[in-house]
Design a protein around this nucleic acid. Structure first.
Lengths: 245, 245
DNA sequence: CGGCTGTTTGATGAGTGTCAACGAATGTGG
DNA sequence: CCACATTCGTTGACACTCATCAAACAGCCG
């Protein structure tokens, strides 16, 4: 089994004593909405979160144009969100790791602006947005949390914008995603990356063939290896250097 | 005086009858936080918004690393927000038109993540964020408005990401900013663009020289004209076509 | 007038998109 | 389990775009 799927969840469950709520058991709750909530606040929050649902590869959680009514949170696995360009071609907006909230760009006009689909067998939690607004009137810290989550996402989205200037966009992409795995308690040097090169190319805005060549170059230089969707970072210093602008 | 600075503000002021609050007089309030507030909510909101302050070109409202304590809203003129890359070189994150809120990416860890500076003589309003959180506990619609504003910004930031694939990034940039002027009641075909080509190049992630050449080509093709910072769109159909992916 | 910033121009090489074709891997149904 | 179709990744040739360096020019302000 790939290391990515070695969830820390079980370890967490065994370490702590007493009856824990679902969110308290979750390995990524500190990255998610429950951050800083009191126990009673958490209980109320959970009352409107569906228990995590498992879905197969390629399942869609929501798609462009649908009425927005809930936020979706990655619990395990990986999702992508996509949009369409003028020619109807799929463009990758982002990849989503556990603890990340999908659908935030649907709030402003109550319509999903992207399509979310699972890149591998995954699980997710779902929060009705109306319920969320309702109970957050009583718990200001919950609203503040959502603001923080959105603020952080806004920041990382803008940071992406800066990255146009990077020497090797692929190196930067790998570096960034490695950090995201690390934060979630996975190895930062070897992880399961269930993304096709086509999708990476689309995300980075380059041709599939170009990405293939660059990937090969990185592997020839022994910076990384990528086999069977397992990505291993072999020379982090060099990777970091290539990721600079 | 450039057409951009022909503010609609005065017209609005003269049309409506009776005593209006500052925000009610503002031409861009419908794009801003007050959207959908009742009169009493608006009065409370305004009590913590500083009256619009005028600043000179190049003035900074906040800068990277400073403690985040307030949101800044463009009232007139134009601002840019910038960040630094690894080599300490300035990178343009965004340009901001009236009604747009700056500093949102500072919420999540209470530190400004960017620097905001005026591109021309401009004015802005300022809202203490703590005060905002406080009174928004009483007025949920106010929090919801902020969520919507952030959601919309997130959307447009992600949309930018799609734009890597455009045939002519400059054409797309011009098309987009033209729409933003239109929404604000300015002419969509001729406007004052107080941005240097260097800044546009930085924003679009290309070399200054390349941008100059592309700009010249667009002018030779009589798609646009750009003189003394007045941008005129001469052939919108062609512009739109070039802006596609 | 000189100094500054912003823009332009030319020459050159590296990098990328495109097209076309092929090989590898994966999934499907009998 | 095999034959087949399909998706995914690779490779080569070629034209084109862009970044880079260097230099000159235009506009502005003291």
């Amino acid at each position: 089994m790939p290391s990515y799927q070695n969830h820390k969840l079980e370890q967490f469950q065994n370490k702590v004593v007493g009856k824990l709520s679902r969110c308290e058991k979750c390995a990524v709750s500190s990255l998610c909405l429950p951050t800083g909530l009191s126990r009673s606040e958490l209980i109320d929050l959970e009352s409107m979160i569906s228990a995590s649902q498992i879905v197969d590869k390629n399942s869609q959680l929501f798609s462009i144009g649908e009425k927005f009514n809930a936020l979706y949170i990655v619990h395990s696995g990986m999702f992508k969100t996509t949009s369409l360009d003028e020619n109807g071609k799929e463009r990758i907006l982002n990849f989503h790791l556990p603890g990340e909230i999908m659908g935030l760009d649907g709030i402003y006009d109550e319509t999903f602006q992207s399509t979310a689909s699972a890149l591998t067998m995954s699980s997710y939690c779902k929060i009705s947005f109306n319920n969320f607004l309702e109970i957050s009137e009583d718990y200001p810290v919950l609203q503040a949390n959502l603001l923080k989550v959105m603020s952080r996402e806004l920041y990382s989205c803008k940071k992406n914008h800066i990255d146009i200037g990077s020497k090797s966009k692929l190196a930067l992409f790998i570096k960034t995603i490695s950090q995201r795995f690390k934060i979630r308690g996975y190895s930062e040097d070897e992880f399961f990356l269930p993304i096709s090169q086509r999708d990476i190319a689309s995300y980075l805005g380059m041709a599939e063939e170009t990405l293939s060549r660059i990937f090969k170059k990185l592997q020839k230089m022994e910076v990384v290896s990528f086999k069977k969707h397992i990505l291993t970072i072999l020379d982090r210093d060099l990777l970091n250097e290539l990721a600079e602008s």
